[in-house]
Design a protein around this nucleic acid. Structure first.
Lengths: 151, 151
DNA sequence: TATAATTAATTTGAATTCGAGATAATAAAA
DNA sequence: TTTTATTATCTCGAATTCAAATTAATTATA
């Protein structure tokens, strides 16, 4: 009969957790992206607009940190959104290395229209879990993510 | 005093769950990718090799489904691994539309060397959760992912 | 003050991924 | 059997991302 060591059990669970985490994130991302696509945006663009919508004007590198994009990618996505006139750049008066991005009226109008819809869509995506299960999942996943962060 | 409706609570939890899910997956992916990079591979390449290593010869489109890559991306990653001589293509004798990919001796040797190391690294990444917590997390995340899949 | 180190944003080039369409083989239907 | 639909792979072009190097501004140090 085959013995399974504690180490082997942990490795098996870790791999399984990695797989389900990837699958769930992929599925949620795909659904979220499908919703956002209806508004003519991609995930990165929406993440930037959402941040500015809820938190107001932000330095570009701050946005990059929050939405997990490299600084070189930020230039790209901010350029695209500026071309669509949903946001604009503004030089920081105190520190001339810094550039703020802020929503234009057009960008604010857009988010007024789509943000509530998107929020409802997100609730639907996770409706497979009860309120309590979502709370448990948040606690566990957060703990796992924070630990993984500084390995 | 501000009342929070059930709907608003669910939306808040869904958004929070989405954020922690994304963060945790990103962190785990980053650590996993860092480990794999030491072997001169990227995540997609490793995923393909791992599948062939553990499950044996597979049709290319089957690999794509398992590692969540589009068929056009499969051609690219299989080409790269074939160029490195870790795997090779083999025509299916029964169905001439199908091409198998299988590990070469060089590819098997590579995986013999790195797979145990990688498994240990993955266990470390998720060592922030106890055995029981990992089991709970797997159950909850799997449930959420499966539901999200068919929304 | 002059020099060095750090920080912010950008430019450039490469890697990775996808979607749409092409090609070819097989299976199903008329 | 001929036609149609499906399946598997590949080609091509576009989109997105990152890393490395660049420019410019600020802060720390000698």
């Amino acid at each position: 009969m085959k013995e399974i060591s504690q180490k082997e059990l942990e490795e098996e669970l870790a791999l399984k957790l990695f797989v389900v985490l990837n699958r769930a994130q992929e599925a949620a991302q795909r659904q979220s992206a499908a919703d956002i696509k209806r508004y003519g945006l991609n995930l990165s663009e929406f993440a930037v607009l959402e941040l500015l919508y809820n938190k107001g004007e932000q330095p570009i590198q701050m946005i990059g940190k929050k939405v997990l994009l490299a600084s070189s990618s930020m230039t790209y996505v901010i350029d695209k959104l500026a071309k669509k006139e949903f946001l604009a750049r503004r030089a920081c008066p105190n520190d001339r290395r810094v550039t703020y991005a802020y929503l234009t009226d057009k960008g604010t109008e857009l988010m007024d229209g789509i943000f509530p819809q998107h929020q409802a869509a997100m609730a639907t995506i996770f409706a497979g879990l009860t309120t309590e299960e979502k709370e448990q999942a948040i606690t566990l996943i957060k703990k796992a993510g924070l630990f993984a962060d500084d390995q």
